[in-house]
Amino acid sequence: MSVQSNVEVHSEWGIVSARQAGRNLAKELGFGGVDQARITTAISELARNIYLYAEKGEIVLEGIEKKEAGGVHRGLRIVAKDQGPGIKSVREVMEDGYTTSGGLGAGLPGVKRLMDEFDIDSITGEGTVITVVKWLR
């Protein structure tokens, strides 16, 4: 439906640009203030992971739709991809309280809880692709 926007992340500026693009799209789609903040926080976390562990990668943002019994559902999809070292044990980083994320609920489990859908693919030595979706309520 709507155009997708790609933001390259290889510096903290990239993180800010990704947030900005995410917030604009979230507003456009009609997300409220709290959900906008959740979406940008998720983008922040994903982009920071790219910046810290893979050095560079990109965040792809897109408005999406799905047809359901109640009508058309709209949402925002974020794809974070990099060609970094990959994650050795996904199960470990998805565990709550895993410490390298800086603790206190941040990190990938935190992102998962902020969003409605979460999917991760990581191959050691090749990179990581994380896809998350927030649906409009």
């Binding site: 903040a37 959740r38 926080t41 309280g97 206190l104 489990p109 935190g110 809880r113 902020l114």
Partner: peptide, 15 residues
Amino acid sequence: LIEIMMGYGMAYREH
């Protein structure tokens, strides 16, 4: 303020 509270929100959910 909402942005500031996000960290607490994430910590709260993890808790």
